[in-house]
Amino acid sequence: MPQQQTSSPGQGQRFDWWAAPAAASASTASGRPNPGTRSAVTRPGRTVPTQPAPAVPAVPTVPAAAPTVPTPAPAAVPAAAPAGATDSTEVYRTVQASEAFQDIRRSYRSFVFPVSSAFLAWYLAYVAAQAAAPDLMRTPVAGPFNVAWLLGLLQFASTFLLTWLYARNARTKRDRAALGLRWDTQDQLR
């Protein structure tokens, strides 16, 4: 079975993959190499990149007799809001003020704030115990595990437990009401 040959760059082809495509197209479009871009010199069996030409700073040509005075930009004119934008803003404000939205928000806050406070207090108690009572934290519990290891692993367990509780709370108390409110809002926007 014949082997498939891979193509290699031939005479005059570019092989330097790191060169910018815009610079490559600019140098090949005119037929002359573009100064300041990398070009490749092809030798039999190998491609060797050449160094870019040193950049020559451009000297701006400004007439000496004509002083440049900046022209003030025209004042920005606020665009008129389309009629639909005012209606959607009013719809969202009405929804936000509705009793259903406030119930969803109250339910969210009544779960998240106490649970976040309890978890933060639990974490800070663990850190404070590490700093204030190192002898207590070194007390062995079972084999190589001490109180510090046990409390540290309980930090992970409590994180997963709180995540599960949050998802269950959202699913049972808020998701249906929020979805209903969303559909009502979408109907009002049509």
Rank of each mutant, 00 (worst) to 15 (best):
M1K: 02
P2N: 04
Q3T: 08
Q4Y: 09
S8N: 10
Q11K: 06
Q13D: 08
R14Q: 11
R14E: 14
R14H: 06
F15M: 01
F15A: 14
W18F: 15
W18H: 11
A19R: 04
A20T: 08
P21D: 04
A23K: 06
A29G: 02
S30L: 04
S30C: 03
G31Q: 05
G31Y: 11
N34P: 01
N34Y: 10
P44Q: 11
T47G: 01
P49A: 09
T50P: 00
Q51I: 09
P52G: 00
P54F: 01
V56F: 02
A58M: 03
P60L: 05
T61W: 02
V62H: 04
P63I: 09
A64M: 12
T68Q: 06
P72E: 14
A73D: 03
A73I: 06
A76R: 12
V77L: 08
V77G: 01
P78Y: 03
A80I: 14
A81E: 11
G84K: 15
A85E: 15
D87T: 05
D87H: 10
D87W: 04
E90G: 09
V91T: 15
Y92H: 08
R93K: 14
R93N: 09
Q96S: 06
Q96R: 14
A97Q: 06
S98Y: 02
A100L: 12
Q102T: 09
I104Y: 00
R105E: 05
R105D: 10
R105Q: 10
R106M: 02
S107L: 09
S107Q: 11
S107A: 15
S110N: 12
F113G: 03
F113V: 15
P114R: 15
V115E: 14
V115P: 00
S116T: 15
S116Y: 15
S117D: 11
S117E: 07
A118R: 15
F119M: 08
L120S: 13
A121M: 06
A125T: 10
Y126K: 05
P134G: 03
D135Q: 13
L136S: 05
L136P: 01
L136C: 02
T139C: 12
P140E: 03
P140V: 13
A142M: 12
G143K: 08
P144F: 02
P144N: 06
P144H: 07
F145M: 09
V147L: 10
W149I: 00
G152R: 03
L153K: 01
Q155A: 05
Q155P: 00
A157F: 12
T163E: 03
L165P: 01
Y166I: 04
A167F: 08
R168C: 04
R168H: 05
R171G: 07
D175M: 13
A178G: 05
A178M: 12
L189F: 01
L189H: 07
L189V: 13
